[in-house]
Design a protein around this nucleic acid. Sequence first.
DNA 1: AATTTCATGTAATTCGTTACATGATTCC
DNA 2: GGAATCATGTAACGAATTACATGAAATT
Lengths: 233, 233
Amino acid sequence: MSRRSGILEFAVLGLLRESPMHGYELRKRLNTSLGIFRAFSYGTLYPCLKTLVANGWLIEETGGEAAPPPASGRGVASTSSLAGRRAKIVYRLTAEGKEHFEELLSHTGPDAWEDEHFAARFAFFGQTEREVRMRVLEGRRSRLEERLEKMRASLARTRERLDDYTLELQRHGMESVEREVRWLNELIESERSGRDQRRSSPEGSTRHDTSGETGGLPRNRDNTRPDPSDDTK
Amino acid sequence: MSRRSGILEFAVLGLLRESPMHGYELRKRLNTSLGIFRAFSYGTLYPCLKTLVANGWLIEETGGEAAPPPASGRGVASTSSLAGRRAKIVYRLTAEGKEHFEELLSHTGPDAWEDEHFAARFAFFGQTEREVRMRVLEGRRSRLEERLEKMRASLARTRERLDDYTLELQRHGMESVEREVRWLNELIESERSGRDQRRSSPEGSTRHDTSGETGGLPRNRDNTRPDPSDDTK
DNA sequence: AATTTCATGTAATTCGTTACATGATTCC
DNA sequence: GGAATCATGTAACGAATTACATGAAATT
């Protein structure tokens, strides 16, 4: 069976949906373009790709002609077409894969509000139905509000017994969560007022500049860990 | 050898240093008092405790293995069945354990600036030498600044190709990191001004006033609340 | 009396990393 | 021709979770 990672599977499917890629590039996109994801290692990625192929969500397209059974008629010639470099194994989403991804997109389990999961969901909001986006945002918010409740309670209970540093750490942690809640509030407000009803095409952006004041933070801790095989190094 | 979790080991040692406890309580402290820690499960905690005992850093104190262990005379031994009642096991730090913990406290490897590790270190700053605190805070800060650099680069590189949501996620992530940097700056400033408040000779007596932080951390506000139980699950 | 909370554990499983191998291509 | 980077994998291990199993104490 292939109860693979969930988040990795989801992200891979989502990225490949935009365009076919080989493993190496995929990993880079995972770490940079979707900055939220922690750096998955090849030891994780490649086996996952195999599983996805085995499930029929992906097919491999080898660029090399050495293989006699290239069954599927693919028009992608080994050279020329792809900007200068030629990859060994290009993964492409199958129809079933696409279907599976859509299904994952619309399925909102209570998993979807957890830190990493939420970030992954959010990263593909461009492909997500508005209704689902709402559910995810609101789910996340109430998850955080729960968390806040506990933190407040704990703080009240232990206030006297702790030293300044511990207290400060808790205070800071709580503030972070509060910020994320505010951020979510703004996003939800945006969705409601119908900011952009988008479709999957990456069109121009209505960016408000990066110095915007939409305080808060989703990706709290554990983002990227140092990685031996890290890019941009 | 037991290259156990590192952070769990560290936290357990640190908590037990303050006072002996049994496993169940330990876990609660891990989740609440030191709110930063993700909720370790019993499946993680108990085996870890065993390892620590095996290493000689802890000893188990069962209700008293001699004959009459009931502590305060109570309905003991009602279970006619032998084997003694299943007693609480209180763990106490041994001298070696204490020594080991001090060693961990003063050792600053590049691990120490990683997210979870850092939080654990910070939580025990009360027991930590000022000099070491400085190293950890500054190490953490430069780790984050590195991170920011990468994020900025990535953002600049991909700005055009991404949709609004992805961009927003990245923006938000960056802001979070920036915010933590500012926090660290304040803390570092506090440490600096807290040191040698009175008549500072660079050396002199190395009194460590672990409790009365003259520098003063940013104070926090009141949150009074009663509260029933809590448990992260 | 029944339920909840306290308390301790184990086995199987999931998720992911490190370290190791290998080779092709590009840049200097 | 040698280094760096691109590219793909595997085996061994690591850390932590879940689900299971047990039982005592306190509450209702």
